[in-house]
Design a protein around this nucleic acid. Sequence first.
DNA 1: ATAGGGTTAG
Length: 798
Amino acid sequence: MRSVGSIHSVANRYAGQLQLCFSRSSISFSLASSIHAHMIASGFEPRDHIRNRLIDVYCKSSKLAYAKHLFDEIPEPDIVARTTIISAYSATGNLKLARGIFSKTPLSMRDTVFYNAMITAYSHNDDGQAAVELFCNMRRNDFKPDNFTFTSVLGALAFVADGEKQCQQMHCAVLKSGTGWVTSVLNALISVYINCATSPSVSSTSSLMGAARRLFDEMPVRDELSWTTVITGYVRNDDLDTARELLDGMTEKLGVAWNAMISGYIHHGLYQDALELFRKMLSMGIQLDEFTYTSLVSGCANAGFFQLGKEVHAHILRTVPKPAPDFSLPVNNALVTLYCRCEKVDKAKNIFEKMPMRDVVSWNAVLSGYVNAGKIDEARSLFKEMPERNALTWIVMISGLAQNGYGEESLKLFNWMKFNGFEPCDYAFAGAITSSGVLGSLEQGRQLHAQLLKYGFESSLSAENSLITMYSRCGVVEAAHRVFLTMPYVDSVSWNAMVAALGQHGHGHQAIELYEEMLKAGIVPDRITFLNVLSACSHAGLAEEGGHYFDSMYTFYGIAPGEDHYARFIDLLCRAGKFSEAKDVIESMPFEPGAPIWEALLAGCRIHGNMDLGIQAAERLFEMIPQHDGTYVLLSNMYAVMGRRDDVAKVRKLMRDRGVKKEPGCSWIDVENKVHVFLVDDTGHPEVLAVYNYLEQLGLEMRKLGYVPDTKFVLHDMEAAQKEYALSTHSEKLAVAYGLMKLPPGATVRVFKNLRICGDCHNAFMFMSKLVQREIVVRDGKRFHHFRDGKCSCGGYW
DNA sequence: ATAGGGTTAG
């Protein structure tokens, strides 16, 4: 039998040991549980104080089940135990359990701290109204609110609908309670005023900010938090100048406030200011931490300062010798993004694999890196591997597949996402809508549009912008225009999409007009704008205007034309038949011409029958992209037309050597007003297949050149086709035969995508020759077929 | 026993 004194000393020893669990920066669960085990083994029955301590350790090391078990065993828990368990339940999101304990606690037992814990529980679980009600209830029951009460309940006001009124009422309550001079209460009050001011539904932003500022200026004592609150408040309110003034007047070396300022600059695209501040931080000896690095690296990634980003990386590696795993997580995530952006996905993957800890953000960063690099196979397998997915994962994958041309797979994934219980957000819709456009499926697009409205996303920029492009791709430029005109907000992406839509449908002049209107609206054109403007000029045959806009790119807007801009400019010149100018431009380019340049040149040559230059371009293409099957076929066909049999043989041999498969399909060349069509495959049902492929090929060619196939006309047989032909306008007749002749300005582009041929391919080509009113020469195997004016004559052998 | 600030993926 132990004496009372010895039990006390044992209890004190346990209390001391439990204190050790808190002594390090982290809570030691293992130490606590071994102390607990020792108590049980030695038959020690812990009294309230020791047990509460143990519950606290278990809560803080997020072992909720242990804490709950221990608590439930107490016959009559004291108020301290109840308070502890309530905050544990609150921290783990178990609001119901917390409320259960609270309501079972008699009024006579409660104290202010107990109420505070429950108010915090409501506040942390986004139930601001309940927090405020409990606060009122507490005062009705004559409990005196203290500074903790006010900081908690003020924090909860962020979730209250009518925050503005409530925060003025709470301000009065603070003044009455006599806590109006306490720094922490004032901080919370300032924070609430700023929160209210920043909320979009509030009209009196400046007066609320004024109230916050007055409180700050009149504070008896300002701590770190006061500075941070007020500086971040101005940053969040987009008043960077005032924030900076305060920062410059701050005597404390407070990294948090500097970090907030840097991230503010970065979010507003003021990268130079962010850098200047970073340098000042270094020179003033302010401690840089993971937040600084994360903001900086991500800023460099967004601004395209890749070299600088890498220098920051080197700086981190030098100065942070052994970062804790969770310290480096956000920094590493930002680094992964940086390397993805500068097209070093492999390097990014490398960092990702070496990371001591990863989260969804890390996985999503690599995933989007792969998607943006067009590495869809890698993206697919990464997506399968992912241990956790969130809404963004689906968005990245859905829109990534859409942008890389995998329309069907993207739509499947969109449905699969919904099936997995993820509510589609506007970005997911944007991806799915893009897919419908890629597939040219107007029906699908319309359905998604209707669903989008049902979900209430009609003012979402990303979704509405995707609708413009979708309708345009499906050939209904009018619908695209309607979307553009009815959008509540537009941005440069909307303008760009609409300019592109008009341009792609041959409304070149209107596209240019819209571009001019965009400039008047104060939107600064970007590199995408110029791609669209150049295409529009090209399709409308506006060679001179195109030249003017091309020049203005650098001289007025300081945007150096990239290879894609040059390619479109070359395309523009070649379509206008200005081959010598095109050659001059190619020679004056600041870089070596790549495949896109030769492709543009070749396309122009095919239209104008400029065989010499065309073959030169095809030869260069052939050297550059030998993996591209179409180039072999095209080049050998061009040699064939020119009668260069030796060269044909050479290319054929190369094809055999490299094992190039002859895919079903065909190519065409326009020489001296005769269109030469080459059918590559004659297996299966040769004729029907060949013609069907021909139409498919036409669709592909069209896309390549920036035109958009339309599925508006679905013809099921020749009779219907003939009827449709008879009813078509002149420009439509010409457009049907796109690719077989130069597209006249203003023509609408249409392809009979689902044309089914009843009969043989001869009928189809006869039909086409009538449409284009030119001779079509078809080489099928070794035989030539000449189609002219709806009649056919079979030619000699190859 | 209870409260309050800055960072990352599209």
